[in-house]
Design a protein around this nucleic acid. Structure first.
Lengths: 186, 186
DNA sequence: CACCAAACAGACAGGTCTGTCTGGTGTCAA
DNA sequence: TTGACACCAGACAGACCTGTCTGTTTGGTG
């Protein structure tokens, strides 16, 4: 088997962790399983991340980074603020659909880590704050006075559609959410 | 110490399980902990429920039963369909507030049990279907033609507020949700 | 080429998990 | 009063958990 090049174990682990933690849940996956899936030894895991907790945080940060890239793509693809907002709904739906409606990784992590002071929860707050911030920035270019309220409302619709689509095992809630969002920002 | 009377161990276990599973998460709590919290032996747990999985299902069913009682109280306290709908939002908020914003027990369980075929997930679907059914029944008495769409929209707002209030660690999202709900059903 | 850092391989410790089993004890009902 | 049954107490099995350690091998760099 091709030996892992020095410095590559971290990336392999992150990829494996992302797949397994998201698919099966964080508590349900052991470090041995992550290392095996990455084709890397447990020693490499602890050498790179120090602990499972820190690997979990790194996993969420990485996912946040990828989501940020998605936001950048949306910004590049659409100039109209309203279109950008609606594109966020589409992107959210596409992510969940691609992953078999296992829900938002950050909300799932929140369920598994009850302590609000946990570093995991800080990453979640950072991610959600950034998302709301993006919506807010777009909405300010429409009716600045209503932008804050609208951002709150759209966040409710996004999160609601995300969790409901998991229970329903399908994208239908996003149709409802997008339609409602459209009338709100019209 | 007063000995547990025959037949009471099940109820004690259910109460302890409800507290611990909800507060700390299901995978994070072991059967020994549940038995100890209930003041009961592990043998009694397995005698009454057979397995941890079945205890989890019983925990969610019990919670669903209690929520159904809440719905009955709402029905008794309000005659107007619109008031009943808004009272559901208030009740949802009150439950989360009482429990320190740990979120909806059923959505949290969904995060922890990825397999849609798991009995746990069946209980979740049953609970959410019943909730939507109640809203739908009320909405049909207003504009029957829009009732289905409205029920979907209100569910999004409820779920959205539930999860967002966990991330935000406070009830503010429910203000947004209720205000929006009010304009939708006006 | 020689060295170092990072990987490999895999044993190991100490704890926790679910689930079982044995044997004694209290309660209720017949 | 006696028998059935649900409980208590706690040991036990076997798997899995996180995290550590020893020693070896290898790739990249000076």
């Amino acid at each position: 088997m091709a030996r892992t090049r020095p410095g590559d174990a971290g990336a392999k682990l992150l990829k494996a962790a992302s797949t397994l933690f998201y698919r099966d849940g964080i508590h349900a996956v052991g470090v041995d399983t992550v290392a095996a899936e990455a084709g890397v030894t447990k020693a490499a895991l602890y050498g790179n991340f120090g602990s499972k907790s820190r690997l979990v945080v790194a996993y969420l940060r990485e996912r946040d980074r990828r989501w940020q890239e998605e936001i950048d793509r949306i910004t590049a693809a659409h100039a109209d603020p309203r279109e950008r907002v609606l594109a966020v709904f589409d992107a959210y739906e596409a992510w969940l659909s691609r992953d078999g409606y296992r829900g938002c990784a950050f909300l799932n992590a929140t369920s598994e880590f009850p302590d609000p002071a946990d570093p995991v929860r800080e990453v979640v707050r950072h991610h959600k704050t950034a998302l709301r911030g993006y919506l807010l920035a777009q909405l300010r270019r429409g009716e600045p006075g209503r932008a804050d309220t609208l951002a709150d409302e759209l966040m409710l619709l996004l999160e609601g559609a995300a969790v409901t689509s998991v229970v329903a095992q399908g994208p239908q809630p996003f149709d409802t959410a997008k339609r409602l969002a459209q009338t709100l920002i019209a």
